[in-house]
């Protein structure tokens, strides 16, 4: 058994044990939704998205969604509607299985590409062929990618590697994307206090060596949102200018009340 508080997901055996995985008989008949939601949060777009009434959240809204596998046709509309990206469609009706999953990264793969399929932990499982990439306007910018994989791996494969490179090369590429050294000076980083990347670079040049030092010199993070939006960007710019690594940069001190509350709230 894995520990969901450490891994962040339930594996297919755990989902089965909890009665939250479609039966093998149903999977063998054709595509069906696999709902891997395990958080009792107030959320039900999947229920309203299904035209066939196959998904029930009910009352209270914090219930986990329940799939009626006899009603599900495997259309995949629910995949794009789940804010937690926790719904997939698996089909084991042919020699090779297919897995459809939400993929909100660019560049999108193309039909026919050979991609690197990964499991729920993001670990490489096998190479796979892309059958479909569905990025219809109705998906609202949540493309669905369908890949072909061996049946025995289809319960574990849930996505593909983002840049279709080896783990090492992918890490290096992603770091390049995250390079903020060339950030334009006029980019507004702290919207509350209207602080630009140029202001932040100037503060660093004048000696700011921490997120807090930048905040004191520029007011970035001192506004209404208290840095919830900008402090990550500020630390990336600090890293790019000084060569400090992400884990060497201390986040800014969080101050109560974290989110703005009115003085009146304190009256009672």
């Amino acid at each position: 058994m894995s520990d969901i508080t450490k891994t962040g997901f339930l594996n297919s055996a755990e989902l089965r044990e909890a009665g939250r995985y479609p039966s093998e008989e149903r999977l063998a008949k054709g595509p069906t939704a696999v709902i891997e939601c395990c958080q009792n949060i107030p959320c039900n777009p999947c229920e309203t998205a299904c035209r066939f009434g196959a998904i029930t959240v009910g009352d209270p809204i914090t219930n986990l969604p329940v799939l009626d596998e006899s009603k599900c046709v495997g259309c995949g509309v629910c995949i794009t509607k789940c804010p937690g990206l926790a719904i997939f469609v698996v089909d084991k009706s042919k020699d090779m299985a297919t897995v459809s999953f939400p993929f909100e990264y660019l560049p999108l793969p193309e039909k026919g590409d050979t991609v690197k399929a990964v499991d729920r932990a993001g670990q490489y499982v096998c190479d796979a062929r892309v059958l479909r990439v569905n990025n219809a306007p109705a998906n609202d910018s949540t493309p669905i990618v369908t890949i072909e994989v061996p049946k025995e791996l289809s319960d574990d494969i849930r996505s593909i590697r983002r840049l279709n490179l080896s783990e090492e090369d992918e890490k290096a590429e992603l770091l390049k994307i995250d390079d903020w050294s060339a950030v334009p000076d006029d980019l507004v980083v702290c919207r509350c206090e209207e602080v630009t990347a140029g202001d932040i670079k100037k503060a660093i040049a004048e000696g700011a060596a921490t997120v807090e030092g930048i905040k004191k010199r520029t007011r970035a993070g001192m506004g209404l949102c208290q840095g919830r939006t900008c402090s990550k960007l500020v630390s990336r710019i600090l890293g790019s200018q000084t060569g400090m690594k992400a884990d060497e940069i201390k986040p800014d001190t969080a101050r109560m009340p974290i989110k703005p509350v009115s003085f009146g709230v304190y009256k009672e």
């Binding site: 009340p257 703005p260 509350v261 009115s262 003085f263």
Partner: peptide, 9 residues
């Protein structure tokens, strides 16, 4: 001030 927000302490 009862209706004004506290953003930080």
């Amino acid at each position: 001030i009862a209706d004004v927000n506290i953003i930080r302490t």
